[in-house]
Design a protein around this nucleic acid. Structure first.
Lengths: 366, 366
DNA sequence: GTGAAAGCGCTAACAG
DNA sequence: CTGTTAGCGCTTTCAC
């Protein structure tokens, strides 16, 4: 850092403040930290000196001495997507209340980045790390164990760390049942490769479990997991749709497609419509996330809503709890909600049979 | 921070590493920093010790000593919106290449937050601060001057700091001309209050300048700047549309509405369509930003495209340059591009007369 | 209530 | 090429 100086060019540390105020450095420290009772008079002198000299404490020095940084690391997969962005926003808002700062890092779905980012965070002595999304990184998480740094997992669950997750499997299971009962018979699942995100596995499990429960034969199950749907989601989906889901006549093969992401769903819808396939009459499409434009999309997108703010808030609070010594394993489950809109035809009464009517309900499992 | 210890419970500093390796601390420091020539043999010993003890250097101690933090502060207005999120993503990606870390703060369009965030950044001795968006904060920027901390402004220009901005006024001016020539006669501008963001002023200036140039009379100019369009943009816009822009019969008053944001535009489009107003036949609507779903919106949204990645990259690079000593005032202008889609009717040949055909061209002004 | 002094972990001179 | 030493700015005993 450029050395911080006051207008007259002298560097200003706690020592100069003390001199200026006619006290000793530790007194300044005490008024700064409220760590001893100081006369109002002395306090005033010190405050005046701080003001006059534009003194700002040096966090590095303080951290070094106190062995605390009030820094929390956040590693997420793609900050440019609304899901992570909103989650980040709410963590930032929450952390500032406790005077914690966040160091946010974007892994871009690449665990090599994560490795480097974790090192950087440890060097800076973060007091804890939140991972939002991701997967396939047992080695990294294990490495962090060695440093005794608290970890919280968001939107995933490895069975080993405190975490905040959504009830993916259950929701998708219910959705499949509702779709089946609404008359859908041929089901497709479309998304990124499952190993990119831990939660994708649970969603897919719900998909399969639902189909099994409804007795859907293997020949009426399609699943597409491809990197094409990972990068450039909406464009990639638009481009890939016809090849993946229509027959030689350009007619849709499945009755309904479940996607792992609203953008993919929207790409599919746009591609279907522009190829003369009617949505939802000829093909149902379901998104995931319920990002803010999905309800204004034409037709409004049927999708699974996850509360991104809540995710962020709970991740932060849980980590804070762990940092502050509550080391018991904790597990927060946030409920998703099916937004039954116009890219599918599911009668409300059928849906309501499967869906818990309370939105945003939380479960706590010790 | 929790003190970092190795598995056997001893804290591990450079001193333990040195002992373990049978060298002296400064040697370890040298191999760590490449600041002296060390025998391969010694180096190997040190590296082995580091590995064995899980040593991670303490950034606070290093920062304190070196008077450098390799930390850059970023203050932006709303990280949950795609514009800022993408910009942040590209800054993060760029900074990591130079081994800088970013401390990102979300001001939520509130300068009181900015004040607190600036203090926090200064305490942590960031080497520079990027402000993306915002305005009305001369006092804050001036305060930062006192601390001698480099500042770069993104998507705005106060005439005093190095900055990266878009050619807002010019683009909007050209757009108005093209709209007029395409037959539009009654113009509306809709957005947040101008003082929330510096760039809004330039856009509005372009709006007025264009109308003046085309000889549009005052009675055919509508402008709505309201906080209603600021919070909950898309929902707020949807809710407010009929009241703001239609007459007692529910018919649109303006021929075309320019908005300050794609979400507002999409809210308007959705509201218009659901009230039986045809877009673009009866009403043209133009967005701003060209967020990723806008081209898949129905009808695809005519909007002004700003390259958010470039904004982030240039902000970071410019700040880096200033940090590294190049203190000359620099000013990067990024060109916007009009995406002529289906919520307006502008013949391509008319548009092309006004628009520089090279997209993403950069201007550098000394 | 206030002051003196030690030391957090590291780096940078400088001497050897 | 390696070792000794001082000190970055702050907090925190511990005396007074």
């Amino acid at each position: 850092m450029k050395e911080i100086k006051n207008s007259s060019g002298a560097k200003v540390t706690i020592v100069e403040v003390a001199k200026y105020a006619g006290v000793v450095p530790s007194t300044v420290s005490h008024v700064l930290n409220g760590t001893a009772q100081i006369t109002d008079e002395t306090k005033a002198k010190v405050l005046r000196a701080i003001e006059a000299l534009h003194y700002t404490p040096n966090a590095s020095a303080r951290n070094l001495r106190q062995k605390r940084t009030r820094l929390i690391g956040v590693i997420l997969q793609d900050i440019s997507s609304e899901f992570y962005a909103k989650c980040t926003a709410s963590m930032l808002k929450e952390a500032v209340k406790d005077n914690y700062a966040l160091m946010v890092m974007d892994a871009c779905f690449d665990n090599n980045n994560v490795r480097a980012q974790v090192s950087a965070l440890i060097e800076r002595r973060v007091e804890g790390i939140v991972f939002v999304g991701g997967g396939n990184d047992e080695d990294i998480l294990q490495e962090i164990e060695k440093y005794n740094i608290p970890v919280v997992l968001g939107d995933r669950n490895d069975g080993k760390h405190p975490c905040v997750e959504f009830n993916n499997e259950e929701t998708v299971y219910h959705l499949i049942c509702a779709l089946y009962e609404s008359g859908y018979r041929k089901f497709a699942y479309a998304g990124e490769p499952l190993d990119i995100q831990e939660n994708l596995k649970y969603r897919y499990q719900g998909f399969v479990k639902g189909l099994d429960a409804c007795g859907v034969p293997e020949r009426d199950r399609i699943h597409v997991m491809t990197k094409d749907l990972h990068i450039d989601k909406i464009d990639g989906a638009y481009a890939a749709f016809m090849k993946l889901f229509t027959d030689e006549k350009g007619r849709p093969v499945p009755d309904v497609i479940l996607t792992s992401n609203d953008l993919i769903a929207q790409g599919f819808v746009a591609a279907a419509l522009s190829n003369g396939i009617k949505v939802p009459e000829e093909l149902g499409i379901v998104g995931f996330d319920d990002i803010s434009i999905s309800k204004f999309f034409q037709p409004p997108l049927t999708t699974i809503c996850q509360d991104k703010d809540e995710l962020g808030i709970y991740c932060y609070r849980l980590l804070k709890k762990v940092i502050e010594g509550n080391r018991e394993q904790e597990h927060v489950i946030l409920k998703q909600k099916i937004q039954n809109r116009k890219t599918t035809r599911i009668p409300e009464d059928i849906l309501s049979r499967y869906i818990d009517k309370e939105p945003g309900q939380k479960g706590q499992v010790g």
